[in-house]
Design a binder for these strands. Structure first.
Length: 244
DNA sequence: GATAATGTTACGGC
DNA sequence: TGCCGTAACATTAT
């Protein structure tokens, strides 16, 4: 489920409940669900991989983590692993295996929305400043940094680095200015390709290196390695991706 | 059945 | 204090 573009799709699917009042709430999320009843869902905001359901007096923050999922108007099992369900007159939404917390409405205004890779407010100059302040950071860690590229996940990371021909362990400070700009531009650009492909259920088909074994450009064997402080797996070509 | 994986947070040690 | 590494959580496909 979980990289930024997938979360945007979830938001789209949940939009149908906006303007409706919560009639019932259940699930094993560790907070009082009673107060939610009677509140109206006014807005759904996403910040990277997080989703905020904005109610009258509080916001519900949902993070799908690695294995989270959701469903709408399901008629089947009242699943025992249900983390949270919200019911409206018009239907219900269900969330599983995820982190659910409440947040003050004030908290929303403290979020740096310009760091969201999918947002209209995305600010590439700001990202550039943040990157320049961390020259010793590896490119693979930089892309996964949710304070800089909120919404980017491991798939996007691998595909972006291949597209721009940068080896994952390259140091941000060593990238020529043009490459750095390319990294920022492609992080957003690929995220929208991801969104489009995910929407059409053809995302995997378009992976060039992620989970692949041979380089689509030169046919060499790709390197699969845990890289960076995050120790997340990277797939890259030693010939077509330069180590800066 | 073991393993690994689109992610984050908490905690212990230095 | 703060940084770092590791464990923990949890589901599903291979």
């Amino acid at each position: 489920m979980p990289e930024g573009p997938s979360i945007l799709l979830m938001k789209e699917n949940l939009q149908q409940f906006i303007g409706n009042q919560i009639t019932e709430a259940s699930g094993n999320a560790k907070f009082e669900k009673e107060p939610l009843i009677g509140q109206t869902l006014h807005e759904i905001r996403t910040f990277g991989k997080q989703t905020y359901l904005v109610l009258d007096h509080v916001a519900v923050r949902i993070h799908l983590l690695m294995f989270g999922s959701y469903s709408i108007n399901e008629q089947t099992k009242p699943d025992q692993n249900l983390r949270l369900s919200l019911h409206f007159k018009t239907g219900s939404m269900y969330f599983y295996t995820c982190s659910v917390k409440t947040a003050d409405l004030d908290f929303l205004s403290s979020i740096d929305w310009e760091a969201d890779i999918m947002s209209d407010q995305w600010n590439p100059e700001k990202a550039e400043k943040k990157l320049k302040s961390k020259p010793k950071m590896m490119a693979c860690d930089a892309l996964m940094d949710q304070d800089i590229f909120s919404g980017v996940g491991n798939i996007i990371k691998n595909e972006v680095l291949f597209r721009i021909g940068v080896q994952p362990e390259s140091l941000v400070g060593n990238l020529p200015p043009k490459k750095l700009k390319e990294l920022i531009a492609e992080a957003r650009n690929y995220s929208f390709d991801f969104l489009k492909w995910k929407r059409e259920f053809v995302l995997k088909k378009h992976w060039l290196v992620h989970t692949k074994t041979t380089c689509p450009k030169c046919g060499r064997k790709l390197v699969k390695k845990q890289t960076g402080l995050g120790k997340r797996r990277s797939f890259y070509c030693e010939k077509d991706q330069k180590l800066y």
